[in-house]
Design a protein around this nucleic acid. Structure first.
Lengths: 230, 230, 230, 230
DNA sequence: TATGAATGAGCTTTCATTCAT
DNA sequence: TATGAATGAAAGCTCATTCAT
């Protein structure tokens, strides 16, 4: 998904019989790289395979991205750019705090579920201890708006008395993403171990409702339950 | 943790003056393999490196485990066996439903946080679409008790009127593990993007409480919040 | 040194706002190629690097010189042309045979020492078994005058009785060049092995005197020393 | 030359149908590497070609020498070890100073002429600015005896009054090696430019005598010839 | 049981060169 | 004249695995 909507530019040809289209070539490589990296992770991905997916020669990967790392970082940046771009289209400010929060949760749920590529490349990068993400300057800036969104909903909710639980925006975001992400990132082992299918439409709908209610119940209540540590 | 407590067995010696200790050798390989696989995933792990970590030659890996896949599957099974073994020591049945649930959540939180190796090897296996886990027979059996535990707590809670939310044990387990797992599995990218430290003791304690209350609030209430789909 | 003194020619401009200056471009490429080839030899030199050194695109290398070999041959020819041009300015004929010989030796010493690029590109070509030099027509003609110079000095020396040793001009030239060339061409290994610095000014001056006296002593004497072969 | 005299050890087989002979394999690779490096220099040499020359797989190069650099350094060390080993067999101390010096010169002349491989690999390393030789510890120690030999001859010559020219051993060694080395290292360009054949037996003999006399004349005289600098 | 030696297949990357404008 | 884009061939090196003892 993502930049799939682009229509073929000027005109491109196959391996032999070349045609010049630098931007198109670059984008094609990036798109296929992202799929490959999402499927196999950084170390499992093969430059050869990415090259084979494209209409141009594998050699162009080095022409445009320098090396495997450079390509991976570019794919990672694209992945983050895409989700943040989507988030900005949500228009949460004109909804009631409660509805806005529901919409945010639902959006997160849907996005993770529909964009397994995104989930997988992020998981892959965590296997790398985020060493490549750290190299990227742009990514850090991209991600401030999601916290702003959460923050604004919370404040409005507190002001209107709809939310009683005092929470840091970062913590709330963590909970939402955790609930939406895990069932996609870990669906394979989960399915094997518990012999179930998390992609089933009915299950999916049930989980979405469950997560939405979990977040809202927590926000609207201020009950405390005893821990077991001390 | 785990098989660290092994005591030195008999002790004959090979030509090279090395102790002959088949079981010890096997366990040493397995222990180091698990660390390596947890660090780098299946494709990133190196047989050479695992060999170098052990006191014996890498050749023994093939002797005992056949090939890389065999070693990986064995490491995976160990990882699951360890957590399930821990779970059975919880003794939840003599606690009140509410306290039992808190204990289960707290345990899950602590285990994931303290055993990043476990989290990472499971994430790695999800990058592999669980293809190796599917090969393992034993693993599926091992994992029934966690659902039983959840199930028993729920039933007692419904019977006593402590819990009002009707839930499938599997769904509840999914929520708990999601909340506890993500903050460990994705701590690296999360930390980079939001410039925070999820391993910080204070943060950790705050999250633990938050997750516990989230689960309990949800269970004890039966409020429904409107979705944004239809 | 050498073609540095070129003056800027006309100056039209290309689309990219670059000056159109065919001859200047060609000379710039040749100058940088010579540096690169001298530094790394034929096989070690990189077309990309030569391109990067110039203000124009590497594509122009192929435009002007055809291929790597063509560029290398051109650089080689330049190198020979430069030294032979210098040699013709020596004006040895109006000096006494002895002084003329000293002057020739000193010049050779200085030139090799100051033009390490020349020394290195010649060494490089010897690593190539002179295969590229053989392709060049012009080079062979260029090098007759040095032998003529030596020859004339010798004849005058014999006529005047200053030199008693009968020698072929070619052999004498070989000796002079050997003594002056080696200490430049092999300075790196020599320095490492014997832990000394051949570029040191004092050392350099001592060697120059030594070489001069070596040649002159040999020429002026006719002693024979017994060999150890037969 | 060099370690060619080794007779085939236990028994080695061709590519398939392996036989174990670690030391033989290592030596074979080293011998062929030296030939390849001498022929083409470091950057021109091909690991593939070295592998093809041997009876074992190219892969073993990495097994024994790590990488191309490691192999090159090993070949370089061998080259120096060989010539220094030969030099120690000269037994110069029981000859008269004059004869000893002649013998040393003749030996150097013969060795360089007969071991073009040695000359070429040293030239190659100078093209590399001796960067690899600098990595080698052993080489520096190996090369002290040649200076000792020169030193002892000189001292005896001064004591007996045979030599009148006061010289540093290092400077004298430099002259001898220069005269013997250049005509081998630069024979290809020299032959092309001056249309002659330096490998011709008669020429070779004439040059040997010339070099011997040059060195001896210089040592036995103490004439000074005026320079042209100041 | 234990181990060093050996290897084929394949991986990332480099390099001189040509295409198309 | 000038240039960016594109490429095949090959280079150095890695990796899981097997051989032979």
């Amino acid at each position: 998904m993502n930049d799939n909507a682009r229509q073929e530019p000027p005109s491109r040809r196959s391996k032999r019989g070349r045609k010049l289209d630098p931007d198109g070539t670059r984008r094609e490589i990036l798109r296929e790289a992202r799929i490959e990296f999402a499927e196999k992770g950084f170390s499992g991905a093969r430059i050869d395979d990415i090259g084979a997916r494209t209409k141009t020669a594998k050699r162009m990967i080095y022409y445009y991205f320098g090396n495997k790392e450079g390509l991976y970082v570019a794919a990672l940046e694209q992945a983050y750019a895409d989700i943040r771009a989507m988030e900005t289209t949500l228009e949460l400010d004109h909804l009631s705090p409660e509805l806005a929060m529901c919409r945010l949760v639902d959006f997160t749920f849907d996005y993770e579920q529909e964009n397994t590529d995104f989930v997988r490349i992020i998981s892959s990068e965590n296997m790398n201890y985020a060493q490549y993400l750290k190299q990227s300057r742009n990514v850090k800036e991209l991600n401030s708006n999601i916290l702003d969104s959460v923050s604004r909903i919370l404040e409005r909710g507190y002001a209107e008395g709809a939310f009683r639980r005092k929470l840091r925006p970062l913590d709330l975001h963590l909970m939402i993403i955790s609930l939406c992400y895990y069932r996609v990132s870990n669906m394979h082992t989960f399915s094997v171990i518990f012999d179930c299918d998390l992609t089933d439409a009915e299950t999916s709908e049930r989980h979405k409702k469950m997560i939405r209610n979990t977040i809202l119940c927590y926000l609207c209540s201020d009950d405390e339950h005893p821990g077991t540590d001390a």
